[in-house]
């Protein structure tokens, strides 16, 4: 069974072996160059972001903030709702719970702005429509909690040794485990395959 998994070229075979905990060791947690000036940093980063947005607006002659086309070399045109790939309509992955503390709610944990995706635009036409990606983010919250606290890969063997085989465990049984801290830690990878189906 074990030969299913790793290509023979994988360099990291040895690293499956027991190693120190996956949680940050205090010695590795260090501030290297002194305190960061928070306000200044946030100001500078905001400035960079504005510059980027302006550059994009110029490049595509499109006002991304107000979702309006501007005059320029590109001619923006609306498309029928069903005619573009499903990908553009699918709601985004909900933001991770642990990141709620971040004051910039405009970024999710992957650095994506929850912007409105413009599917198309056509003059004053009624059927010009935008898909607001901000809607519906509540689904699968538990999965996300799992993801946030989720284990890194290559679990140390001391974690996994007591239950190396899941052969007789059905998927349902696994997912019905209460979302206690320990089960969250042990089944983080369940979440990704399941989430993909949604």
């Amino acid at each position: 069974m074990s030969n299913v998994r790793i290509s023979n070229g994988s360099p990291t075979l040895e690293r499956m072996e027991a190693r120190q905990s996956e949680y940050p060791k205090p010695s590795a947690c260090r501030n290297l160059f002194g305190p960061v000036h928070r306000e200044e940093l946030s100001r500078d980063l905001m400035k960079h972001r504005q510059d980027m947005e302006e550059a994009c607006q110029r490049k595509w002659n499109f006002d991304f903030t107000n979702h309006m086309p501007l005059a320029g070399r590109f001619e923006w045109q609306a498309v029928e709702k069903g005619s573009s790939p499903e990908f553009y309509f699918r709601p985004p992955r909900p933001p991770k719970v642990a990141c709620r503390s971040a004051p910039h709610e405009s970024l999710d944990v992957n650095g994506n702005c929850p912007t409105v995706i413009v599917v198309g635009f056509q003059g004053n036409s009624e059927d010009a429509h935008f898909v607001d990606q901000k809607t519906d983010v509540s689904e699968n919250h538990t999965d996300l909690a799992e993801q946030c606290t989720g284990q890194r890969k290559r679990p140390a063997t001391d974690d996994s040794s007591p239950q190396p085989k899941r052969a007789n465990t059905t998927e349902e049984e696994v997912s019905e485990e209460p979302p206690s801290a320990s089960s969250v830690e042990q089944t983080p990878k369940k979440s990704s395959p399941r989430r993909r189906q949604t």
Binding site: C29, V36, S42, L45, H48, R49, C99, A102, H104, L107
Partner: peptide, 19 residues
């Protein structure tokens, strides 16, 4: 962020990522 001894915050990291 924990590895930086919390000298930076996740939102700063994400903004920096974009940059």
């Amino acid at each position: 962020c924990i590895y930086t001894d919390n000298s930076i915050r996740p939102d700063e990291l994400l903004q920096m990522e974009l940059f």
